[in-house]
Write a protein that binds this DNA or RNA. Structure first.
Lengths: 201, 201
DNA sequence: GTGTACGCCTAACAGTGTTAGTGTCAACCC
DNA sequence: GGGTTGACACTAACACTGTTAGGCGTACAC
């Protein structure tokens, strides 16, 4: 009863994950079911479990696939703030390119993210400031990506139209401005702490 | 066959939503099913549809319930930045109190949020700066709440332990510092634009 | 006492993730 | 070439999910 394998490309973990991301990109997270995914690959749902432990592993695979798009090519800016602004702008771009995967962000601790934290520390931050700045920037970018890709029903009739119109736009420029603002503020606070001892007053 | 209604409190929309939030708070979003919810109320699933159109309406009700906790009591700070910092710190606190509802944030445009935007404009911002600042702060707070309540598996062994330990803490103080940093940066940019014309130098 | 409307019920449909057991094909060993 | 083995995909089923249709019992109005 088994159909001939020759008819179609062999099912592999890679093909499963790639197809899954394609479905999610095109039709959203809810459209991704094991039966639908299998059907797209010309196979029954149960067969997928030979290549993948469960649906969670498929979702993890999707996250990995998206993350692999984060690589930047040289040349890199000399200034460390410019560099981080560039990195996070890229992060935002990739998230927006796969809007429906944003709610999957943070399924695992992000190795690349963890690389960046020691880097920030090397700029002379205190540990606490470095962690706070890092968490703030990451939170902002993910939050901004989430907000910008959510198509909110247009209940905002009570806003002046000039405002309402602008509230529907989520320019990348804002990502750059805000990331820079956060980093500069924490950097300034750090250097102030070295100069004067703020003990209360 | 119908059981006597006298045995239990009557099922109402309010009781449904309240119980739903209790389930979500205690056991997470996935634990909330119509059958489970009905069972908690001593009723069958189908009966809920007499009081509620569908599950989405229950979720909307949850969002409304959480939002009702956002009210602040006077006295309010005089400085507008202090005021906004207070508001968003409170916003963060409420979100963290109901961690599993964070992914529901943004189901509808937030009336309260929309109130705040004209308020920011009244501080002398340009329209574009006001919108950018507003979107940035909201995005940051929601993102920060989302990150801080996600229990990420401890893959971070490769981080220095002092760092790893601090990365697990998400202090409210950071919310206040970052919100203030963003607002001050955009405010400064606005007032600069009034003084000097930055045309590229 | 009768009529009516409401509130809840059972039963069912179409869909979900997942597992057990079975079959079939392809490649390897001798 | 014949037999064995193992990988792969199949069917069938289980326990769930949200949702709808239709019926029954209770409580209230007149």
């Amino acid at each position: 009863m088994a159909t001939k394998r020759v008819d179609r490309a062999p099912v592999t973990r890679d093909r499963i994950v790639t197809r899954a991301l394609a479905i999610v990109d095109a039709e959203g997270l809810e459209a991704l079911s094991m039966r639908r995914l299998a059907s797209d690959l010309g196979v029954e749902a149960a067969s997928l479990y030979h290549h993948v432990r469960n649906k969670d592993e498929v979702l993890d695979g999707i996250v990995g696939l998206v993350r692999s798009e984060l690589r930047l090519e040289p040349p890199f800016p000399d200034d460390w703030i410019d560099l981080l602004v560039l990195i996070f702008a890229r992060y935002y771009t990739v998230l927006v390119a796969h809007p429906h995967t944003i709610s999957l962000a943070g399924r695992h601790v992000d190795t690349d993210e963890a690389d960046g934290l020691p880097f920030i520390l090397a700029q002379g931050f205190s540990i606490d400031d470095a962690v706070a700045a890092w968490q703030s920037v990451v939170s902002f970018v993910i939050g901004y990506a989430a907000m910008s890709t959510r198509q909110i029903p247009g209940d905002s009739d009570y806003l002046p139209s000039a405002l309402a119109e602008r509230m529907t736009r989520w320019p990348t420029e804002t990502v750059e401005r805000t990331v820079r603002a956060i980093l500069e503020a924490y950097a300034a606070a750090g250097s102030n702490a070295l100069k004067v001892q703020p003990s209360g007053g």
